[in-house]
């Protein structure tokens, strides 16, 4: 279990663990400053792309990603770009909040999901993540998906990545 600490060495350890675990679960990733987010998204997206606006200070989406989309656009999108509210180092997990602007469907329907997560929001282990989520859920009855790697199934006689959800996931880790 990766312990959460605030000192620089401790943070580096948490982030190192997070990247290793993203690798373990076949999630590619890049680490950028906020003003590099747009290019980083651009570099991995396949059109047509839809998205959900990123929170303040986490960078901008490139022009090719539309945040105004209909259910038909959702089904037609090749890439969905969303923020992630937390990263969990021990599992390489991206926590996707359920929001009125549609993080849940945008992260789910397209074959490729690009998640943008802030370094500051990467926690060590499952218990730390649930401690944060518990407060949130009790306060504002929120929901979230702990997503780890692409969707997968072994029901068709062999392991296949890309079942009902994305086939490929890319994480953009934003420096503070």
């Amino acid at each position: 279990m990766t312990t959460d600490t605030t000192d620089a060495a401790g943070r580096d350890r948490v982030l190192g663990r997070f990247r290793d675990r993203l690798d373990d679960f076949d999630v590619s990733h890049t680490t950028v400053d906020p003003d590099g987010v747009s290019d980083a998204v651009e570099a991995v997206l396949e059109p047509p792309a839809i998205g959900v606006d990123l929170p303040e200070g986490r960078g901008e989406l490139p022009p090719g990603v539309t945040t105004v989309w209909s259910p038909a656009d959702l089904r037609g999108a090749a890439t969905g770009v969303t923020p992630a509210s937390l990263g969990i180092a021990d599992y390489g997990s991206l926590v996707l909040p359920t929001t009125a602007d549609g993080v849940e469907p945008v992260s789910l329907f397209a074959d490729r999901h690009v998640a943008v997560v802030a370094e500051d929001d990467v926690v060590g282990g499952m218990a730390s993540a649930l401690a944060r989520l518990g407060d949130r859920f009790r306060a504002d009855r929120g929901s979230a998906i702990v997503a780890t790697g692409p969707s997968a199934t072994a029901d068709m006689g062999a392991l296949v990545q890309g079942a009902h959800g994305p086939k490929a996931v890319h994480a953009i880790i934003v420096r503070s």
Partner: peptide
């Protein structure tokens, strides 16, 4: 270690 999705 964990399944792809845990919906909370």
């Amino acid at each position: 270690d964990i399944t792809s999705y845990v919906s909370l």
